[in-house]
Amino acid sequence: MKKLLIVEDEVSARKAMTEKFTRDGFEVETAANGEEGLTQATKFQPDLILLDIIMPRMDGLTMLQKLRAENEWGKNVPVIILTNMTLDDKEKMKLVGSLGHEEYLIKADWKLADVAIKIKQTLKME
């Protein structure tokens, strides 16, 4: 069973994703901010991380930077950024460009079913 880590501060968004992807046959762990996300990632070593950007305590991009800098596993784990963030798009695009592995999806443009397909493609499950 593939393992997903969902890093999302909004409770109901987290709930929607957790339930959907569990039903789709993933093992799901969650974290409510970037700080928790880093801890969980190290502990749980997921196959893929779904990451929101605007979060309290530590935002998604900071977490991503730290994750990529931390160790070999962290450098390579696939990350899908799933967000509605629209502030500082330029800054964000730069980061995403430089980091390399990430998909960048706008929540409202994506049905959960399509996100699931994206995850499966990334993990080469289909």
């Binding site: 909004e10 109901s12 968004a13 929607a16 994703m17 959907k20 509605n84 963030m85 629209t86 502030l87 929540k107 409202a108 049905k111 959960l112 079913a113």
Partner: peptide, 15 residues
């Protein structure tokens, strides 16, 4: 921007 998060989440539940 703050409205976008709940809007997209409710869309997911409806989906």
């Amino acid at each position: 921007h703050q409205l976008r998060t709940p809007i997209s989440t409710s869309a997911w539940f409806l989906e």
